[in-house]
Design a protein around this nucleic acid. Structure first.
Length: 104
DNA sequence: CAGCAGGCGGCAC
DNA sequence: AGTGCCGCCTGCT
């Protein structure tokens, strides 16, 4: 345990455990994967996910409760749409972690 | 509210 | 095989 490959896998596994209608921050996801402080890693990996992935990458947002992508990005629109489809409400592009945050 | 520095991997040279 | 730069980040000034 601890090698790079398992870290990547850990992130994916942690992501799979996020239930619909809930969201986690990058840092939280990394922490759940056993990699505290590796928030950026989570972002990098999600960025590299193939389009055909089954992983709920859309449930990952930044610590500010916002989608960490340019609003003009196609991925932004899709992420927002998927979250709204799961019942997540946006307040001016912002999500309430207090309400939709995933707590173990 | 904006700006800067810090810690962790990934990828290119 | 080693070094360096960059990122869908964060927390603190």
């Amino acid at each position: 345990m601890g090698n790079k490959d398992s870290n990547r896998e850990a992130i994916y596994l942690a992501l799979m455990n996020i239930p619909p209608g809930k969201v986690v921050t990058y840092g939280q996801l990394a922490a759940l994967a056993g990699l505290p402080g590796a928030a950026r890693l989570a972002g990098t990996l999600l960025c590299g996910l193939p389009e055909h992935t089954h992983l709920p990458w859309h449930r990952v947002i930044n610590a500010q409760g916002k989608i960490s992508l340019p609003e003009s990005s196609p991925a932004y629109a899709e992420q927002k749409r998927r979250l709204q489809a799961e019942g997540v409400e946006f307040k001016n592009q912002k999500i309430s972690l207090r309400i939709y945050g995933y707590n173990t």
